[in-house]
Amino acid sequence: MANSKRQLFLKRRLRVRNKLRKVNEGRVRLSVHRSNKNISVQLIDDVNGVTLASASSLEKDLGVIGKNNVEAAAKVGMAIAERAKKAKVTDCYFDRGGFLFHGKVKALAEAAREGGLKF
């Protein structure tokens, strides 16, 4: 029986997250979520279970409300890099979830790297 797209996505997300947890213990996780209309990202400290910083295309100050394209993802990536500096985070690992590292997710990652995050 063929798996649905949702089931394949969930399997891929667990596979990616479990591999990253084995390699990057003690580091902060940069978690990405992409929907059809928006993109959001969080810096999560899994040891303490807290979110250190977040950014989303829903925020008015970024000026990309209602847009879900590569430019919006790049602005969100720069915003999370600035907020990570304020939270004194420089090293993290990139958790793309079940999303492919292509297009918007890749643009967000590259902008965060340009902003000073190391992963």
Rank of each mutant, 00 (worst) to 15 (best):
M1A: 13
M1V: 12
M1Y: 10
M1N: 11
N3P: 12
N3F: 15
N3S: 15
N3G: 14
S4F: 05
K5V: 12
Q7W: 12
Q7G: 12
L8F: 11
F9L: 09
R12P: 11
R12W: 05
R12N: 11
R12Y: 13
R12F: 11
R13A: 15
L14F: 14
L14P: 07
L14Q: 15
L14A: 14
V16T: 14
K19Y: 07
L20A: 13
L20V: 04
R21L: 10
K22E: 15
K22G: 14
K22I: 12
K22L: 13
K22R: 14
K22P: 08
V23P: 00
V23L: 13
V23C: 06
V23E: 09
E25I: 10
R27G: 06
R27N: 10
V28E: 02
R29A: 12
R29L: 04
L30R: 03
V32H: 00
R34Q: 08
R34P: 02
S35W: 01
N36M: 09
N36W: 12
N38T: 08
S40M: 08
V41F: 00
Q42V: 08
L43S: 08
L43H: 00
L43F: 07
L43A: 02
L43R: 01
I44E: 04
D46P: 01
D46L: 01
N48C: 05
G49F: 04
G49I: 07
G49E: 02
G49P: 05
L52P: 05
L52G: 04
S54P: 07
S57R: 00
L58T: 13
E59C: 04
E59W: 08
K60L: 08
K60R: 11
K60V: 12
D61W: 10
D61R: 09
L62Y: 07
L62N: 08
G63V: 06
G63M: 11
G63E: 09
V64D: 01
I65F: 10
G66Q: 06
K67G: 06
K67E: 10
K67R: 10
K67D: 09
N68F: 06
N68L: 04
N69P: 07
N69V: 13
V70E: 13
E71N: 11
A72D: 06
A72E: 10
A73C: 09
A73G: 04
K75Q: 09
K75I: 02
V76D: 00
V76L: 03
V76H: 01
G77D: 04
G77K: 03
M78H: 12
I80S: 00
I80K: 04
R83C: 10
R83V: 08
R83T: 05
A84Y: 02
K86D: 00
K86C: 06
K88P: 00
T90M: 12
T90I: 15
F94K: 05
F94W: 01
F94Y: 07
D95N: 07
D95S: 02
D95G: 05
G97S: 10
G98Q: 06
G98M: 09
F99L: 01
L100Y: 15
F101D: 08
H102M: 15
G103D: 13
K104Q: 11
K104A: 03
K106I: 03
K106F: 01
K106Y: 02
A107D: 02
A107K: 03
A109E: 08
A111I: 03
A112P: 05
A112E: 02
R113M: 09
R113P: 02
R113L: 10
E114G: 14
G115L: 09
G115A: 02
L117F: 03
L117H: 01
F119S: 10
